[in-house]
């Protein structure tokens, strides 16, 4: 059980990393909301996903 729980735990970090990658690709290749405002929002919205994936916070 503990091993399975640990596996799920690590899966979530991977998931955070995947979402970060998806967001970065959308920063460059998105079709909707192309303006500067959302460029900025995309750029900072990746922060928690990157830092979580890197086990920093």
């Amino acid at each position: 059980m503990i091993l399975l729980q640990e596996l799920i735990h690590q899966t979530y970090f991977v998931l955070a990393g995947l979402i970060a990658v998806l967001l970065v690709t959308r920063l460059f290749r998105r079709k909707s909301r192309p303006g500067l405002a959302y460029d900025i929002v995309y750029a900072y919205a990746i922060i928690p996903f990157v830092l979580r994936a890197l086990h920093i916070k």
């Binding site: 998806l22 959308r26 079709k31 909301r33 929002v41 900072y44 919205a45 928690p48």
Partner: peptide, 13 residues
């Protein structure tokens, strides 16, 4: 991800 992004960004912001 594009569709849900405003929600995600709202949570972050």
């Amino acid at each position: 991800v594009e569709q849900v992004f405003p929600l995600v960004a709202t949570m972050v912001s």
